[in-house]
């Protein structure tokens, strides 16, 4: 059956038979054309971009850089992911067609790295947002180390079974425990600020009131997580 699919192989090796399962065949085709999304937020992308060049040429592995998430299979989260960037990263991931793979590149995207202790804006590990397949430490990792991570990802893809993937994806969504956050009413009502404002012409008063009203309408729990 498969000899019909590979007429060229049949010519070169006449006495051999290639036996495979549809699952293996789909895995093989999948791992040999991983198209990464050009996603980079900071310094790790410099190392990733050097892979595009001829020295560490990653086209050898069938990786063609893509600028659109709709054409990409793989996303290397190169660089620090901040709270502000997090929604757009999740959106980019959601826009990628199945099957999709994630490599967390650099210390910042694995755990937060050097921002893990006292930063107010860094996401502590990109695996809180999207499921990660391979973790690649380094600050930033060498281009060779990126290729090493890719070979490990290829190894993972070659082993996987199609039915299992969807199950594991829902299970390993994030490693953290579910926090019992509950929505509170905002304490920033803006009324105490008005006492500080000295009594002024009516136009200033109205403008400040409307300003605070518009601010308090933004729910505060959005900023918490």
């Amino acid at each position: 059956m498969n000899l019909i699919e590979f007429p060229l192989l049949d010519q070169t090796s006449s006495n051999s038979v290639i036996s495979t399962t549809p699952n293996d065949l789909s895995n093989w085709s999948r791992l040999s054309s991983l198209w990464p999304l050009l996603y980079g937020t900071s310094c790790c992308f410099i190392e990733f971009a050097s892979l595009i060049g001829s020295r560490f040429d990653f086209d050898r592995y069938g990786l063609v850089p893509r600028s659109s998430p709709r054409q990409a299979d793989l996303i290397l989260t190169a660089g620090t992911v901040t709270m502000k960037m997090a929604p757009s990263l999740v959106r980019l991931y959601e826009q990628m067609p199945e099957p999709k793979y994630v490599i967390a590149m650099g210390a910042c995207t694995i755990t937060g790295g050097m921002f893990s202790t006292d930063s107010y804006s860094t996401v502590r590990g990109v695996d809180k947002l999207i499921p990660v397949d391979v973790y690649l430490p380094g600050c930033p990792p060498k281009p060779e180390a990126v290729i090493d991570a890719l070979t490990k990802l290829r190894k993972k893809i070659s082993r996987e079974i199609v039915e299992d993937r969807t199950l594991s994806q829902n299970k390993n969504r994030c490693f953290t425990t579910s926090h019992k956050l509950y929505v509170r009413r905002s304490t920033h009502t803006g009324t105490y600020e008005q006492e500080l404002l000295y009594q002024s012409p009516s136009t200033l008063d109205i403008s400040s009131e409307t300003f605070f009203k518009s601010k308090s309408s933004v729910p505060s729990y959005k900023l918490v997580n």
């Binding site: 490599i103 590990g125 973790y135 990792p141 060779e144 991570a149």
Partner: peptide, 12 residues
Amino acid sequence: EYELSTYDRHEL
């Protein structure tokens, strides 16, 4: 040594 990538971050 720089090839440290793993499948689980707790292995790091």
